[in-house]
Amino acid sequence: MITGYWPYLIHFGIAAAFVAFLLFLTTKIKPANSDKAEKYPDTFECGVPRKGDARGMFNVRFYIVAVMFIIFDVEAVFLFPWAVSFLDYKATGLGLFILAEMTVFLIILFIGYFYMIRKGALQWEDPE
């Protein structure tokens, strides 16, 4: 006999009773001459009829700008702790090493940035 689970049974009972109570209440307080549900085939959403499609189209350039923002955002995330701990590293004689590490990272990042610029990622209008 499982005795440790009776609170769940009570929980379930309260939930079922609450739903039954709400359904009962709706039949009592709704206007007697209200329309049937079949008159509203659309998705019921706050009572307002929906307009158009939920999926909107954006210009693809917004995505490119967003991606570029993410890239430099992440770069900043790496740069801040690097800058904070730079002097500590310098004190232990590893200044050149940590500088070189960050330079390699930035060079790789800027190759990508250069590529994007040259491919016209930030050109908002066609040149011609």
Partner: peptide, 10 residues
């Protein structure tokens, strides 16, 4: 890979 990326634009 980086060489391809770079050469492509320069």
């Amino acid at each position: 890979a980086l060489l391809i990326l770079l050469l492509q634009v320069i």
